[in-house]
């Protein structure tokens, strides 16, 4: 059930200490350096994980920091440390206790991140109530999901501070939004917007005050 597999390409070559971590079913493993991490089912990793690519289908808990160049997570992922990488594609339910930093972060689902989310490009499609302490980056997008449902009005993002160069928000409740170009879309409740060059506010958005700095 819990196997440490050597990469097929390495067979016959010099022994390579970097292995894959493949878990299916219900399994627990220790942290470490891996090439590919693939989890389907219920997986738990105790310790920090550093890997090239990670794919999580199912429920995954990392008791430590997860660092993956490329991470695809479907299902429920919980990281009890920081989440770092280059490209993070997260869908489903994601909970991170620390900071989340990458170049590209794409989320569709519900996230709860107790630290800073920092990436060049952050795209969040909300499918449930989400909470983030801080959002920072260059291009930041928050969209409400299309699907309509009884609970759809709970689909909103609560965040303290959003800072970026080009910001577009929907269904977001924030204390401060600071940026160069700021576009506040429907369903937002923003206490204060500080912008440099451009500010737009759609119908159905509430902004307490906006100042050009």
């Amino acid at each position: 059930m819990n196997e440490d597999k050597r990469h097929p390409a390495d067979e016959g070559k010099r022994p390579d200490p970097v292995r894959d971590l493949v878990m299916s079913g219900v399994a627990t493993a220790g942290g470490g350096v891996y090439r590919r991490v693939h989890i389907s089912g219920v997986g738990r990793v105790v310790g920090d994980v550093v890997c090239e690519t990670a794919r999580i289908d199912g429920v995954m808990t990392v008791r430590g920091t997860l660092e993956a160049k490329e991470l695809v997570a479907n299902g429920k992922t919980k990281v009890e440390g920081a989440l770092r990488g280059h490209t993070l594609r997260l869908s489903g339910q994601i909970h991170v206790d620390g900071d989340c930093s990458a170049e590209v972060v794409e989320v569709s689902g519900a996230i709860e991140i107790d630290g800073l989310v920092s990436a060049d490009e952050v795209t969040i499609r909300l499918y449930g109530g989400s909470k983030v302490r801080e959002l920072g980056g260059s291009r930041i997008r928050v969209h409400r999901s299309w699907r309509w449902g009884f609970f759809s009005r709970y689909r909103r993002l609560t965040v303290d501070t959003v800072e970026g160069d080009d910001i577009r928000l929907e269904a977001t409740r924030a204390r401060v939004v600071r940026g160069d170009k700021v576009h506040i879309g429907p369903g937002c409740e923003i206490e204060r917007v500080e912008y440099r060059s451009e500010f737009r506010q759609d119908d159905g958005a509430r902004v307490n005050e906006h100042v050009q700095v």
């Binding site: 920092s118 990436a119 920072g136 980056g137 260059s138 303290d160 800072e163 160069d165």
Partner: peptide, 29 residues
């Protein structure tokens, strides 16, 4: 510089984490 640059440099550790000092002000953290 822009927010994007500042955050990028922070991610790349060009600016050490300890220099980011969080303080409460009358408008919040």
């Amino acid at each position: 510089i822009s927010y994007g640059q500042l955050y990028r440099w922070k991610r790349k550790r060009l600016i050490p984490e300890e220099w980011f000092i969080r303080k409460s002000t009358f408008t919040g953290q």
